[in-house]
Design a protein around this nucleic acid. Sequence first.
DNA 1: CTTTTGACTTTTAAATCAAAAAAGTCAGAT
DNA 2: ATCTGACTTTTTTGATTTAAAAGTCAAAAG
Lengths: 204, 204
Amino acid sequence: MKVESNVKQDQIVEAALRRFSHFGIAKTTLTEVADDLALTKQVLSYYFPDKQSLVNAVVEKLTLDYINLLKPQMEAATSVKAALQKLTEVKGSFFEKYFMLAVQADHLELARHNSYQSWRKTLAEKELGLLIQLFEKGVATGELKSLDAKKTGELLLETLYAFSRCVKDRGALPDEEAFREVLAKQQEVIQLFYQGLKAETWAN
Amino acid sequence: MKVESNVKQDQIVEAALRRFSHFGIAKTTLTEVADDLALTKQVLSYYFPDKQSLVNAVVEKLTLDYINLLKPQMEAATSVKAALQKLTEVKGSFFEKYFMLAVQADHLELARHNSYQSWRKTLAEKELGLLIQLFEKGVATGELKSLDAKKTGELLLETLYAFSRCVKDRGALPDEEAFREVLAKQQEVIQLFYQGLKAETWAN
DNA sequence: CTTTTGACTTTTAAATCAAAAAAGTCAGAT
DNA sequence: ATCTGACTTTTTTGATTTAAAAGTCAAAAG
């Protein structure tokens, strides 16, 4: 529970995150991360026994950051429509920022580790939880028609996820434009989803 | 215009299609295709100067088969809903059957050739054309609310496409189950799309 | 004149292996 | 508890070879 060690760990995680998101996980060496902080790789390996654990820490941080950013914004939204808008925005900004990471993580060896899978699952669950909550609230207020909140949430997430995957497939280096396109598509889809979900007595 | 040569060409294309869809394009040698027909590779290369042209012929055949199967079924459907149902069915059956081909084609070198791209484009255009026609008819009959048929069609196709791509990403060998899942998801999405598109006065 | 074949060259893909780089270890210093 | 130097092990990378497939062509066969 020492504060200092946590500080140092956080610094390392942040440095790793910068490297990972800029150059990718595979092309980042522990020595480089250490150098960025004027440390040696042995110090690094004192705090994180191996690369996997460092990657896990980065993924964990990212997951928490994402949820902590998204949750209040969605909960503060005054309508389902506005909340879904926020979802795309936040998802988009994160995706753009940490694109490299997202792209590589799933292909890499690391992705098969339990720890990674487990964080991925946590993320998915939390995101789904937010959506379920949102939909249920929407039904309660009458904005949405009666629906299976879980199933609908899963479908929406899977759809957005499917779209993101398409960007990275296109080529080795993903361009800004491809991003914009995907983001735009996602927003359109959300819009259409919403049309299909809202109570029919409401106006657009 | 000789009939016989067309027959032989067709036989070759069919044999190639069998090999390609079972073992993949890259892992299929021209000699194997020739052997299947009790020919030599030189004969094959008499009809198709190189592998690329054979692949193109296969893709062309597949494209035409698909459209020829889909078009009448969609046009015969008595409602937009039924037509969309058909779309998923046909798309699903084709995808399952020629999965290997679909999976590899885009990654392979071959995909960069103009001829391939051009057939891909043709397919996309024809599919989109069917959807536009469908949507416009739906609007005319009052089943659908007023909408931008082109934009909506594109969005739907892109969404279905995005889902298909997810299957192949998962692992090297795609399992039956993954198929079913994707197909089910696609149907759900179509259902929801439809909800969002239909005129509000209609019942489910 | 169309189709097929045998003998050939060129191109591409797969296997091997040594060298370099990175990951990981640990006894001992601060 | 934190860090370092010197070390071993594991992974990547690049060069080199080898085998397989693609592609060519002159000439034969129907």
